[in-house]
């Protein structure tokens, strides 16, 4: 009898576990399917290749090219800036501070904390700084805000890759007469390039998908920006604004825009998966 109840309990929980696990997969499926069903009918070449025309926001002609290009500008700009600051930090932590384990761990802890800060806080902060400096809504302000937001992600992701480089490699390189900085860029970066690209893609995905950080700082425009000081449209905001419109055609375009953003994210995710698989192959094993 005891055994029967024990078995019953185990079976019930096993059932629940299977339900939970497959449920998660099903939810992903449902998300993608609902976006596809709603977005595909109004997705057209016209939508991808044109900027908004007159009456666009009442359902007339035009497309979201301004938002797509704007988002790409924002994501590329901020990823580049974040790499410029993030890579040296990650290298410094793993090469120059190799023997200061406690310090490095404290920095890691700090970065993890920063990673958790919601993007709306960066957005609000960026906005205040922008006002303080007398800047206007612009591509540059957006890039800087997103950079703040993705730097911790970038550094920690690169850091995880660099951490796996064996200490012997550093010692070997130093003993051959290279300086630490040379070792950093010539040996470590070379050894870890696929991992670093994966980290960059991760940060890029975060940058292109985030709405709260750019809501305050980039503004919104129907034109493709030609200078850093112009306001810029972005995909997340295009989706957000169009969805709140009462016009059905505009709402439909919001779904289509969401589909476009989802596809971009999926492509990035698949790319990084392929790269990280290759990374495991090319890494020298000690």
């Amino acid at each position: 009898m005891r055994k029967f109840f024990k078995l019953l309990e185990e079976r019930i929980f096993q059932g629940l576990m299977i339900l939970a696990t497959y449920g998660i997969a099903v939810v992903l499926f449902v998300i993608i399917i609902s976006i596809l069903i709603k977005g595909l009918p109004s997705l057209s070449w016209e939508m991808l290749s044109q900027t908004p025309k007159g009456g666009f926001y009442f359902g007339k002609e035009g497309g979201i090219l301004n938002a797509i290009i704007g988002s790409l500008y924002l994501a590329f700009g901020s990823t580049l800036l974040a790499l410029l600051i993030g890579l040296p930090v990650a290298l410094y932590m793993n090469i120059h501070l190799l023997n200061r384990k406690k310090l490095v761990n404290t920095i890691r802890f700090l970065l993890d904390l920063l990673w958790g800060v919601p993007s709306i806080v960066y957005g609000a902060f960026g906005f205040s700084v922008m006002i303080f400096l007398g800047m206007r809504n612009s591509l540059l302000a957006g890039i800087i805000t997103i950079t703040l937001f993705i730097i911790p992600i970038m550094i920690r992701a690169i850091d995880e890759v660099l951490k796996s480089v064996p200490r012997g490699l550093l010692e070997a390189s130093l003993s051959l007469g290279s300086t630490r900085s040379e070792t950093a860029y010539r040996v470590f970066v070379k050894q870890c390039i696929p991992g670093i690209i994966t980290a960059v893609l991760l940060a890029f995905g975060r940058g292109i998908g985030d709405a709260a950080a750019v809501l305050f700082t980039t503004g919104y425009t129907d034109y493709i920006p030609t200078s850093l000081s112009h306001p810029t449209a972005s995909l997340p905001l295009a989706i957000f604004f169009q969805l709140s419109s009462p016009v059905p055609e505009v709402k439909d375009r919001a779904y289509a825009s969401a589909l476009v953003l989802t596809i971009i994210i999926l492509v990035i995710s698949i790319l990084s998966r392929i790269l990280s698989r290759r990374f495991q192959k090319t890494k020298i094993n000690f």
Binding site: P236, I239, A254, Y255, I268
Partner: peptide, 11 residues
């Protein structure tokens, strides 16, 4: 799931 942007979750 982790990579899907928040605005898409909103949609």
């Amino acid at each position: 799931l982790a990579g899907i942007p928040s605005v898409v979750y909103g949609v």
